[in-house]
Write a protein that binds this DNA or RNA. Sequence first.
DNA 1: CGCCAAGTTGTAATCGATTACAGAAACGGC
DNA 2: GCCGTTTCTGTAATCGATTACAACTTGGCG
Lengths: 365, 365
Amino acid sequence: MRRRTAGPGATATIADVAARAGVSTATVSRALATPDRVRPELVELVMRAVSESGYTPNNSARTLRTQRSRMVLVVVPSVANQMYAHVLRGIDTGLAPAGYGVIIGNLDNAPNKEGRFVDFAFARQVDGVILLCGFVPGSHGRSMASAGLPMVSILSPIVDSDIPDVGIDDHAAGREAARHLARLGHRRLGYAAGPREHVVDTARWTSFREGALAEGVDPADIVRIEGGEGMRYTYRSGVAAGERFLAMTRRPTAVFCGSDEIAIGFMKVMRDAGVSVPEDVSVMGIDGIEQTDYTHPVLTTIRQPRQDLGRAGAELLLGMMDGRSDAAHRRVRLPFEFLARASTGAPPAEAAGRISQDLAPARMG
Amino acid sequence: MRRRTAGPGATATIADVAARAGVSTATVSRALATPDRVRPELVELVMRAVSESGYTPNNSARTLRTQRSRMVLVVVPSVANQMYAHVLRGIDTGLAPAGYGVIIGNLDNAPNKEGRFVDFAFARQVDGVILLCGFVPGSHGRSMASAGLPMVSILSPIVDSDIPDVGIDDHAAGREAARHLARLGHRRLGYAAGPREHVVDTARWTSFREGALAEGVDPADIVRIEGGEGMRYTYRSGVAAGERFLAMTRRPTAVFCGSDEIAIGFMKVMRDAGVSVPEDVSVMGIDGIEQTDYTHPVLTTIRQPRQDLGRAGAELLLGMMDGRSDAAHRRVRLPFEFLARASTGAPPAEAAGRISQDLAPARMG
DNA sequence: CGCCAAGTTGTAATCGATTACAGAAACGGC
DNA sequence: GCCGTTTCTGTAATCGATTACAACTTGGCG
């Protein structure tokens, strides 16, 4: 049997290193993994041989033997989305110290891409999965859940499952948004919706509504403004919602948007239509992407600890992959931060409840 | 030898499938890879056994044997950056049809993270590498270039190397920016810089300068405004540049920013300082991120075909990995799109050349 | 000096796929 | 009916690591 010698360009194998150091492959492997179980002189020999040959263990071989790939699949609806991108970054910083790498499963908001990633799971290409998409991917009747891999969801709980999740308290966030707007004096509230049937959107909408009711707002004056089919949490969704808003005969005086991007799209339509924010309509978002610091007016929003969410999810998954099933951490809630800024203010005088309504005729005359 | 039977939860191996179908593992492998070389009845048998057992080939085993991982490493300075995120998306859509997955190498703008990804390359965990970072990662004196993997760069050429790259013509872009501003009447121009020594930034700055000179602008009136150390192409870099701009005694009347994010940060500072855009100062960016459609005023910019750049890079790499070294494609230049919009306009009257300067004293008096 | 335990090292099995090679079966031509 | 070719299938080698097990050395203790 002729062994390929490690010439320049060719990759050295453990056998090359063993030959060069004059020891067996087992010793090389041990010298690298458990140096305390090998005589110091040999460790030294092996180390020299390793650096001389530029040896890096072949990952497939190691994975095949140890049944651990040290890779994690992150399933994300869209990498191009600010929010997901930042969470992804947090995940990476959380996994890196443990030596785990990230394979990105970009759904691109297209449902037919799930199959590829389901295969990744069943092919044992990853040791665990982090979902940012709010559901468990599946295709051809085969769910990723049945691959038997540790799984964690971030940003959204997974309904009807016991998959641990990390996120903020979306209900509290929705209620707080309603409270903020109601306390500014608003009595007609709108919610510029994200994707229909999405867990997070539903949570935000229902709790916004609850919060508004709790503040004594008339149920008929809490409206959901749809953003259009398949537009998800995008600028364009906000644009569509803004156009619907303009077409309304009895407009809300304040609008809570299902995401910051929606809010920004919404504000753009307002500006173009000559409706000023916050004088004519208050607008707020949620997520707290960096961009909200640079809008005009600066956007009131609820900041999610994006990076921390990612890191916490990563650490939770690491624990599960190590077999430490800290049942205590099955539902992690991190605090959000309410940023009351310039895009929300008191309602216009003619819409501000009974007292102002009395003044309204004078203003009109 | 006792074989683990494929119970629920356990992953089926090719041996399980072979046993169930009553054939050898070789036949199973062939039935899946080259069905035309196996008797139809057996193919049928195997297919049934596969779906009954939920078999998915183990990826490490396959990779180890075939020496192809069907994975690509994408090294990106920061996943949280809009521009890179969109290119990444293009890469993914380009690679997916060929069955390649993406491993993300997020440098996070921190130089010490390179080592991890260099190891990925040497561990043969990927078949190819796409660089968005403008340089070849390396650590401990070992460059990723010596791993002998196909490599492609997107967005930036790699100096002193023959690594193929895909991008726009940054020199043409810089010149066109200068031309646009000069033809609007501007005679004092600024460049809000990106990271020092970055190839792309250098290209944009030098060509902007060249373009301005070609339009007859006085060399002394073309200034580079630094954004601050280590801030790269960020909003904060634009804020820093904006502050430096305000501190200048003889301000440019138009500023070309090294990225859209810089431009947005810059405009924020202008607004807060009561300097209006474009009346007092014209501002333009480059990249063409979606967000520029939602700024006020809408940002003049140069749109790079982000997604197409990613896809083109992916296809170039696919060709190299398949051994088709189309030397013709070693430097791909895609067209950019100049978007002249509301953030750039004529210079303020008192700065518009000789005639206006004659008027200036009258104004002061 | 003999024996047992502890410490080292090497041999070879193993992970799960692909594929070279050989053998068997089927087929056709003379 | 025999032989060569084609088509199909199975056996076993192979990829490159880790690690169980065996073998050998060394040292301590009675």
